[in-house]
Design a protein around this nucleic acid. Structure first.
Lengths: 261, 261
DNA sequence: CAGTGGTCTAGACCACTGT
DNA sequence: CAGTGGTCTAGACCACTGT
């Protein structure tokens, strides 16, 4: 194989070298972030195909007029997203199968809306009560501490999808029934300045009781999907505990997992 | 408030300043990783309590004899794990509620073993067949391409827990029935040098058919938990597609989610 | 052996936070 | 205003990979 320095290097990056990245140093958007977004766009639009090598970091930084750490920061953020793979001694490649959706703390409302299903919510209960032992434990409160309990029936096209029971520390945010019927709980929390950071979820299944079947327009004994979740804000304080049941005929959990090394 | 440089700074880090971190520059373990592990241990053992401030990065780097980027790299890895929170202008704190388990691509075998349940596996089917359309699509193969199909019944204490059906590209690894009965599929894959990187999972529920009920020692119509998963290696190639059913009375999925900003 | 990413240094300036 | 983390530079040496 013929080998000339510049030529062979260019040959490993047929598409990347022809892309131009526009970096704006006047912008408040960090340079590494500008680069990451443009690389992501190039991957998404197929200009960088799966398996393509990116070219080494040093060349890339020289070509872009950036320092190597800045280029690495951009690349690392895409590695974290699962779009690129790095191998020492080999190079940085676009992954073969793209991760479509990163793992997210799923919001039923957002999921249904994203699927074009126009979710509707009926608030069945919205009051402040003393916490039972299990709720207090989940929310890190003293037993008998005040919590707001919400019960909501969520439907699409006039058919119930899920029955949601949630507990929140009283006074954490304003839980207006009208607003709860027009949007999701997590959106309300976000707009109140609460940043969700992590959650612990348990997903299981069981047969519907008579009451549950009636609520969800199913027959007694039908298989239901169940979820319990405690969500934490960015300081690690529990902000929400929920027990949900879903009609298995109308809903399933869809996850994209990334394995962190 | 009395304020003397050294004193007030020490006051914000009552515990950290009394901890000593032992960094070994002769070790092949990176310095940032040594620091991260010692910080993590200090958090786990309660020497750094939830809400404690870590002290600013500059001081920390001077005290440890490290550069600031190295200290930042250690801190960032714990922020990624959900153990620390950083706020510009405020500082770095230990989160209030610790993330017990990071999100993982769960292996039923490992989960059961970790719970002290001594899982046993019976291989019901292990053969190479042409791929059906759905299996070929999931694995990115041509329809009719060769795939290995595995059917396994997993039990603990002599009672079935799940029935697992998996498809893998033929020849990807040696799937010895005896080894499959003594360990989990993911462990076999790891020991064959396959690094799992991401997966797409769907979790749902449905009623057991007569055959499924018989397999799992349940009654027809019982609620079952179902999972479909396609797993990808670190280059993004699909390496496994599975359809699993679980006895809801004996198993539930337990997840720890981190929300990436 | 050449080429790659992994780690590390010693700075600099800035944006944001809370008093 | 002082203190914090966020971004960025311009290097250095090393470990690993594949030929």
């Amino acid at each position: 194989m013929a080998k000339t320095g510049g030529y062979s290097r260019a040959a490993t990056t047929p598409t990347l070298s022809s892309l131009d990245f526009a970096l704006d140093r006047g912008s408040p958007v960090p340079l590494y972030y500008q680069l990451a977004q443009q690389l992501e766009a190039a991957i998404e639009h197929g200009q960088l195909a799966p398996g393509n090598l990116l070219g080494n970091e040093i060349d890339l930084s020289v070509r872009l007029g950036l320092s190597r750490p800045t280029v690495r920061q951009a690349i690392q953020s895409l590695v974290d997203k699962g779009l690129l793979v790095r191998r020492r001694g080999v190079g940085t490649q676009v992954v073969h199968s793209q991760v479509k959706r990163p793992l997210e703390l799923s919001s039923l409302y957002d999921d249904l809306e994203a699927a074009g299903q126009a979710p509707a919510t009926q608030v069945v209960r919205n009051e402040t009560v003393p916490a039972s032992a299990d709720v207090a434990a989940a929310l890190g409160l003293a037993e008998g501490g005040q919590v707001t309990v919400l019960e909501r029936l969520r439907s699409t096209y006039g058919q119930p999808v899920a029955f949601l029971c949630n507990y929140l520390p009283a006074g954490l945010l304003d839980l207006d029934t009208a607003r709860l019927e027009s949007t999701g709980l997590y959106r309300l929390m976000r707009s109140a300045g609460i940043t969700l950071h992590s959650a612990r979820q348990t997903i299981g299944a069981r047969s519907a009781t008579t009451e549950e079947a009636a609520l969800l327009d199913e027959q007694e004994g039908t298989a239901l999907l169940t979820m319990q979740r405690t969500a934490y804000d960015d300081t690690g304080r529990p902000v929400e505990y929920g027990t949900h049941i879903y009609r298995a005929s109308r809903y399933a959990f869809d996850f994209q997992l990334l394995v962190r090394p």
